[in-house]
Design a binder for these strands. Structure first.
Lengths: 166, 166
DNA sequence: CATAACCTTTACGTAAACGGTAAGGTTTGG
DNA sequence: CCAAACCTTACCGTTTACGTAAAGGTTATG
């Protein structure tokens, strides 16, 4: 449908985007994106000759992840920075992992990565549980309200249209 | 066990607490509690003769709810204020609900309360879903890492103790 | 090649959510 | 009754996560 075949160069998905386009794509503002860069959460894939920031697809993913951790998990930028630092080192160690054959080294790298992801996993899990508990609570109250309302409507119907009576 | 029978006055649970005790009990700071009051999120059940704030059990619950909405749901103090305002009017309308026999009025009150709780329900639900998605993602990655690690350990064991070979 | 629409860095401004401190009043145990 | 420990209001300070504006360079388009 919309797949206009990329004839000349970039397949629309591996084009490099400028900051405003990225902002629209991710729902962030240019200012926020620059701020995240300032805080070390990501670096644009490239810079134009005139020093424009240029972002690739993985940058977009990264930004979406940041937004998720910020809005959904409610983490601070500093915390996200910590996590993504591990993410960054993840990239580096991924290369190292492929490079080495030494099983001891491989195990060390994996353990390191595992520890960091276990941390995130635990945090999200705890948050999820508490949020779920709150949600259940609200849902229960909603249910009771629905019941009350149904009863009221029933009563209302009986009152306005005496129907079967008499 | 610890149920020393309340002989004289307050049954330990309906005692009025001062702000510092409340802080310890809820994990908030006195400053935050005063701040929430300032923002209209709650008023202490009473004041001492010397104007000390005095909190009862329902205040504690309220504060715990506030903390939950803040930390777990990640809502702003302003948003929580909005919700609790509805909650406040809920108390008022609850009385009105008991007072009136007019089914039309009862229905109106219930609909109003339902609308407000539906709002909160929807917000929490959406947040929960997104958080769940993130969590699943992380969990999947954790799983892959575990597998990789297991493989590495396997390899390690085979290398260090050639066992069955030879 | 002009010019509109971007972008850059730098820097100051701001709202939210408290923290900290001062100056003074209150409670309570001894 | 008095000192220690708590509380009050008032006010200024701080951090976070950006918003906004200035002064100027860059890119796409006719």
């Amino acid at each position: 449908m919309t797949t206009a075949l990329p004839r000349t160069q970039a397949s629309a998905s591996d084009r490099l985007l400028r900051i405003q386009e990225v902002a629209e794509e991710t729902g962030l503002t240019p200012r926020s994106i620059r701020y995240y860069e300032e805080r070390g959460l990501l670096r644009p894939a490239a810079r134009s000759e005139g020093a424009y920031r240029l972002y690739d697809a993985s940058d977009l993913e990264q930004l979406r992840l940041i937004k998720g951790l910020r809005d959904d998990a409610g983490l601070s930028i500093a915390d996200i920075g910590q996590i993504l630092e591990d993410e960054e080192s993840r990239r580096r160690t991924r290369a190292a992992l492929k490079a080495t054959d030494d099983p001891v080294e491989r195990r060390r790298i994996l353990l390191e990565r595992l520890a960091s992801i276990e941390g995130l996993h635990g945090r999200l899990n705890a948050k999820l549980a508490r949020l779920q508990a709150m949600f259940d609570d609200v849902e229960a109250r909603r249910g009771r309200l629905h019941d009350l309302l149904a009863a009221a409507e029933q009563e209302l119907a009986a009152a306005t249209e005496p129907g079967s009576d008499r």
